[in-house]
Simulated scan of single mutants.
Amino acid sequence: MNNNTSSFLRAAGLGAVAGMRTFLAPAIISHFYSRHKSQNIEGSAVGFVQTIPTSKVFKVLAAGELIGDKMPMAPNRTEAPGLIGRIVTGVFTGATIYKADSKNALLGGLIGGTAAAAATFGCFFLRTTLNKKTALPNFVTGACEDALAITLGAKLISSNR
């Protein structure tokens, strides 16, 4: 796989992770880049992602979301605040991946944000359909979605090495 394809797949895939869980994709890239610094990110607008404190904040936010998502009062992800948040973190994640790979961060952001929007709706409809057709409790399908998002994110960022 060439570097262009690899960058695209990581930006799109981690954008999709952001569509599943708003803070998981930033937590994954911050964890990675705080331990494997990129000279291309250093000193840029996304340079803060390479710090341990940022990594910790994103991890706490992601953990809170993983728990809160299963609560009955959790807001619908396709409503404006949730959708906007997922797209923003998808843009951030895609831009960071592209910047680290010496590519156009704007293009990476567009790819990540688009993937986040698509995954937000796709996973919402998949999960609600599964809940209706299988009578599985929401927390079970939510936990399965968590496992998918974590596995996908870890696999994509580890391909960065």
Rank of each mutant, 00 (worst) to 15 (best):
R10H: 09
I97N: 01
R161G: 09
L9C: 09
G122H: 04
I97L: 09
A25K: 01
V49Q: 04
R86Y: 06
K103A: 14
H31V: 11
L61G: 02
G15C: 09
C144I: 12
A116W: 02
F124T: 15
A11G: 05
A135E: 11
A16D: 03
L24R: 00
G108A: 10
I150E: 01
F23T: 01
A62C: 09
M73K: 12
G82V: 02
T93F: 05
K37C: 02
I97M: 07
M71K: 14
E145K: 04
L66Q: 01
F58L: 12
A25H: 04
E42K: 15
A62Q: 00
G19D: 05
L110A: 15
S159V: 06
G113Y: 01
N4A: 15
D146C: 06
A18M: 06
S102D: 15
G142V: 04
L130W: 10
A80N: 06
P75Y: 11
A63N: 07
A105K: 05
A27K: 01
G82K: 06
N104M: 11
S34W: 01
F121P: 05
I52V: 15
I29R: 02
I157L: 08
A115H: 02
R77S: 10
K56L: 15
L152M: 14
N131G: 08
A115M: 07
T96R: 02
V57T: 13
I28A: 02
S44W: 00
A63Y: 10
K133L: 13
L66E: 01
I28W: 00
M1P: 14
S55R: 00
T22A: 07
F124G: 03
G109Y: 04
E79T: 10
A12L: 13
I97C: 06
I97D: 00
G68E: 08
N76K: 15
N138D: 12
D101Y: 02
A95K: 02
A95Q: 06
L83R: 08
E42G: 07
L136K: 04
I28P: 01
A147H: 10
T129N: 12
L130A: 14
G108C: 08
I67R: 06
V60Y: 13
A119W: 00
M73S: 13
E79C: 11
A18T: 14
G142K: 00
H31E: 03
L130R: 07
G82T: 04
Q39V: 11
F58G: 00
K155R: 13
P72T: 09
E65S: 05
P26S: 10
A143H: 04
L156F: 07
G19A: 08
V60F: 12
L9R: 11
T5M: 13
T129I: 10
R77A: 07
G153M: 05
F8K: 06
